[in-house]
Amino acid sequence: MPITTAEVEHVALLARLKLSPGEKAAYTEQLNAILEYMDKLNALDTRDVEPTAHVLPLHNVFRDDVARPGLPRDRALAGAPEASEGQFKVPRVV
């Protein structure tokens, strides 16, 4: 089922992207082309192939439960565009 412009708009909204009408048209076409290519995979018999959960052949990598100091607060806030009262200040969301 091809991707519609409405779906591109929905995904753009979720990703907080502002797209022009031209971009919407372009991305709709590109996404459809990508999904069409992915469809080729459906031609393969994957019955005996385990779904890939991770690309590395590793599992059970743990750290011990030991607390250690983090960042000093001024450094934690150093990259924030705005800060107030030791906190990150952001546009009100609700």
């Binding site: 750290r63 439960d65 030991v66 607390a67 250690r68 983090g70 960042l71 607060r73 934690a76 806030l77 009262e85 030791g86 906190q87 990150f88």
Partner: peptide, 25 residues
């Protein structure tokens, strides 16, 4: 004692943004 994915303390309370590190930020 420490957070799920980094070594910051899980202690309740504390001055804001004093139990943080690059991972949990």
């Amino acid at each position: 004692n420490s957070k799920a994915f980094c070594g910051c303390t899980t202690a309740f309370g504390g001055e804001p943004n004093t139990h943080v590190c690059p991972v949990c930020l």
